[in-house]
Amino acid sequence: MSDTTQTLPKAGKTLSGGRIDLLIAALLLAMAIAAPFVIESRYMMGQLILGLFWASVAVQWNLLFGYAGVFSLGQMAVFAVGGYATAMLAYYLDLNIFLAIAAGAVIATVFSALVGLACLRLQGVYVALLTYAIAQVIYLLIVTDTNCFEMVGTTCRQFTGGATGFARFGDFGMRAILKGDWIKGNYAIVLGCFVLSMLVSWIILHGPMGLAFKALRDNQAYAVARGINRFHTQLLVFGLSAFFTGMTGGLYATHFQAIGPGIFSISSLLFILAIAVVGGVGTFWGPVVGTIVLMVADELMREVGSFRSIGLGLIIAFAVVALPRGLVGRFSDIFHKHKS
């Protein structure tokens, strides 16, 4: 590698680090599989599952922003679309929950592709603003929905679930099989899906499309001159990332047996941004590392309760200023300096 990679080092190194990736993956996977046999506390298992949800969304956001250069602030909206679609299909049509999750992922993909058609031709910041605005509009339309769709007992229920959302539309069926250990069954399902999404991301990033992303990110004019269609590539990754984000939304709704408009809140988007920024935008393991760090930090800040959000916001700002490529970027810089 030439010395000019000093300024743009991320891409090339992860490529050559395929073996390192495998090692890290094996280690993490071993820990993740061992966890339910070691951990007895249901609360801890719940937190692990929650961590997997966050990590999954952050991984997909990182794929979009860190690799494809699309700065979207609508990630939680895609997540919510997946969750809502799952809940509504199961609630209204009594669809099998796994089918509903798959359908939710597809609907999220279609939704995202439509958004992409509307805004991917725009410059970076415009994309961010529009995706943010679209997410807010959906949120506002849901919470201000007051039209009665059906009566449940004496209360009226809106088609979109209104301000309360949906609950008790089905679960993974683990309570019937595993009884008290149902949460470990849920964990297995969520972990399996997470591993799948990581695997697909890895394959994509190391295939021709990954090269196209890198070319577009590092030198757009050159990439376009070499026949890479920016719009198509970005739309493709928009859809792909939406599929797994939507799927995670469906899993989330099913695990908690509830979904409501709160998921659109800026603080959940913020948590995703924080995970990616602290871990390292544009690095493969960044979102995973970021999730671990922030879940632990969050756990510690539980003590100070109401100051949690203040702390989270400051952590983000600090990380952007002091760790431009996150903990993983920082670590790999040190690692590579040491080696050379």
Partner: peptide
């Protein structure tokens, strides 16, 4: 990366200030 970095950083500041 200034454009996106400063957006993310100010999202953080915004949440902190509001809270």
């Amino acid at each position: 990366n200034f454009e996106t970095s400063v957006m993310i950083a100010t999202v953080g500041i915004s949440i902190s200030l509001q809270n």
